[in-house]
Nucleic acid binder design. Structure first.
Length: 476
RNA sequence: CGGGGAAUGGCGCAGAUGGUAGCGCACACGGUUUGGGACCGUGAGGUCCCGGGUUCAAGUCCCGGUUCCCCGACCA
């Protein structure tokens, strides 16, 4: 009766099965694109609300910029165009006529936003300019996977301009922390903040920072990025300001993004053989109440209690659903487990008589996660339980992550480590080393974690003395 | 973009040797059920991925294309 391929049997099949069975998304009739169904979108919406709040708390405002970008804009920044050219969707015709200048469907908006910023910014008083956009972008990807890599994907992209490099750097790190906190506090996803290697940095950036997450198959997912763009885009788009000293200077800009791929990470990190396991904060339904009855008489008393509990939990601010479908309890249990609902409340005739309810927590399988508790104080109880479930999911993921990272000091150790996780190894930040890794392993440099042990070691590739270790692993 | 699989009802699949499609689940209706994916009966649902070709006849054979999955290269 299993509808979901066991995770251990075929991780990729399992992932696709969960997406289908939990009703998150469908394939679209266009290659590499997906249709996100209401349940999947609801999760994304919650993630978005939390992030948006954090952006606003740190002084950012939202705005919108065009989907189409003149091709020439992309070409103004040499590295940028080189990096993105292979994956551009280009519009050459409109209204039945060939366009004078092709329009690019935005792969990211640095260029078109740079154009506006150049017009908006005149004085140091206009800085910093802190804008975020919720939109979708298009990249002509060769190989796609729902949520993880789609040709069109929804995300947010932040773009800021500052008077000094120091301020820009502060912004880059502030956002990296916003992402990191969002991942942990809202999505129960641990990860490593770090600097991308020069080889892996964003096309056009001075430095790129990322959070790397470990999926259930021990491959890495770059969950988000925050870029120090230096003055590269400011020079390309003439984003200048008159400083206090009455001299004209180029701005220092940043950009940063987090996409719906993070939802893919939530599925991959927390899901199990029963299906999805959602962190309570982003679960569209946090508590489901399943009534249990045989006769009509039982039905009516059970529903009376279930309805009352529903109102109580709702009034306590929880997203709760009373499942009144005409299905057997067993069916409903499995159904909601598949959809990852964190807490299930079971109300049967015995419970009504005893003033109790059955409680099942999704983070623990089977009987282990089941208990019976009093209807008195149920809201408080579940409120605490939801927090516990969040912590438990985070801890499980963290344990998995840390137990699959190995400190390595030689190339042979790295080679072995990436077969079952990530290596943390001394590495010189030189593109030649990245290429060596990519050419000799099916792994790559993930990032140089911000938290580094003190010391000096020998680079596992070049033999140089270095003071930094990099995470190396297979990745999506 | 290279290599390998695959495409048949919503989902999962079966359809040697060519003869005009079937099963399980899901769906609709009726009844019996309901504390871990209930059962019986009745019923509805299919351009067999698309386009050509071979043939009296194509889900099946041939050619071309599209999409999906896996492994690489490339990228959030």
């Amino acid at each position: 009766m299993a509808k979901v391929t066991p995770r251990a049997q075929d991780y990729s099949e399992w992932y696709l099965d969960v997406i289908r069975e939990a009703d998150l998304a469908d394939y679209a009739p266009v290659r590499g694109c997906i249709v996100v169904k209401p349940y999947g979108w609801a999760i994304y919406e919650h993630m978005r609300e939390f992030l948006d709040r954090r952006f606003k708390e740190t002084g950012h405002v939202n705005a919108a910029f065009p989907l189409f970008i003149p091709l020439s804009f992309l070409q103004r920044e040499a590295q940028h165009v080189q990096g993105f050219s292979p994956e551009l969707a280009v519009v050459t015709h409109g209204g039945g006529e060939e366009l004078e200048e092709p329009l690019v469907v935005r792969p990211t908006s640095e260029t078109i936003i740079g154009y506006s910023y150049a017009q908006w910014i005149r004085s140091y008083r206009d800085l910093p300019l802190l804008i975020n956009c919720w939109n979708s972008v298009v990249r002509w990807e060769k190989r796609t996977k729902p949520f993880i890599r789609t040709m069109e994907f929804y995300w947010q992209e932040g773009h800021t301009a500052h008077a000094t490099h120091e301020e820009a750097l502060e912004e880059v790190m502030r956002i990296l922390d916003v992402y990191y906190d969002h991942m942990r506090a809202d999505c129960a996803l641990p990860g490593f903040r770090g600097r991308k290697s020069l080889y892996e940095r964003f096309a056009g950036a001075l430095t790129t920072y990322s959070v790397e997450s470990m999926m259930g198959d021990k491959r890495s997912l770059q969950s988000c990025t925050s870029h120090d763009l230096g003055q590269n885009f400011a020079r390309a788009f003439e984003i200048k300001f008159l400083d206090r000293d009455n001299t004209e200077k180029y701005c220092w800009t940043t950009s940063w993004g987090l996409s719906w791929r993070l939802l893919g990470a939530v599925i991959m990190v927390h899901g199990d053989d029963q299906g999805l396991r959602l962190p309570p904060k982003i679960a569209p339904i946090q508590v489901v109440i399943v009534p249990i009855y045989k006769t009509d008489a039982e039905k009516s008393i059970v529903f009376e209690t279930a309805g009352r509990l529903f109102q109580t939990l709702k009034a306590a601010g929880m997203r709760v659903k009373l499942d009144d479908r005409d299905e057997t309890p067993g069916f409903k249990f499995n159904d909601w487990e598949l959809r990852g609902v964190p807490v299930r409340v079971e109300v049967g005739p015995k419970d009504v008589a005893n003033g109790m309810v059955g409680l099942a927590r999704r983070d623990r399988p089977g009987k282990e996660g089941k208990s019976f508790v009093s209807q008195q104080g149920l809201a408080e109880h579940i409120h605490t339980l939801l927090q516990e479930i969040h912590q438990s999911l985070l801890q499980q993921a963290e344990h998995f992550l840390h137990s699959h990272i190995r400190e390595c000091n030689t190339w042979d150790e790295v080679k072995e480590a990436v077969e079952d996780g990530w290596a943390l190894a001394p590495l010189a930040d030189n593109p030649a080393n990245d290429e060596f890794i990519r050419n000799n392993l099916t792994a790559k440099t993930l990032n140089f974690p911000l938290d580094q042990p003190e010391g000096e070691w020998t680079c596992v590739v070049s033999g140089q003395r270095v003071r930094e270790r990099a995470l190396i692993g297979k990745s999506y």
